[in-house]
């Protein structure tokens, strides 16, 4: 082998090793690299997590209940299969809408109610003008319905 071939083998070897190592590490940390868990995953938990965690999904249509005398709000987060009741006391982001994505950070009590101390809106990758959206709704396909969690 010439020097150049040796260097090429070395570089390719290093790169291959690195890719394999990274893939293994990412696979091992798969669960802890998740930014949020879905309601179905929460329901499947055998024991309640002691630390704070985040749940994500869509705000169930018609589930938002706002208190008259405070900023308290409760709503259901759904992944279309299961849903979790979330309570929150604070200012919601602009994009918090029924039928849209949401990520809430907090803890869950034994009753299965999630007490959020932070609520973030999660938007989908669709960008369209309001008229197009109105046309789609008339046709009976609300946006966000195709969103998967």
């Amino acid at each position: 082998m010439t020097k150049r071939q040796k260097r090429l083998t070395l570089v390719v070897g290093v790169l291959a090793g690195l890719v394999i190592a990274t893939a293994l590490i990412l696979n091992a940390f798969r669960d802890s690299m998740v930014f949020f868990v879905t309601p179905s995953e929460v329901m499947a938990m055998t024991e309640l997590p002691e630390r704070k965690f985040r749940i994500g999904g869509l705000v169930e249509s018609g589930s938002v209940v706002r208190a008259d005398d405070s900023a308290k709000v409760s709503f259901r987060v759904t992944d279309t299969a299961r849903s979790v009741v979330v309570t929150y006391d604070g200012i919601l982001p602009d994009l918090f809408r029924e039928g849209q994505g949401v990520v809430a950070e907090g803890w869950i009590d034994t009753e299965g109610t999630f007490h959020a101390d932070k609520v973030l809106a999660r938007h989908d990758e669709e960008y369209m003008p309001a008229e197009a959206q109105a046309a789609i709704e008339r046709a009976g396909h609300p946006p966000g319905a195709g969103q998967e969690y």
């Binding site: 990412l26 930014f35 949020f36 938007h123 990758e125 960008y127």
Partner: peptide, 11 residues
Amino acid sequence: EWWHTLHQGMS
């Protein structure tokens, strides 16, 4: 695609 992220998917 691999993980749940706050960032939305690819447009």
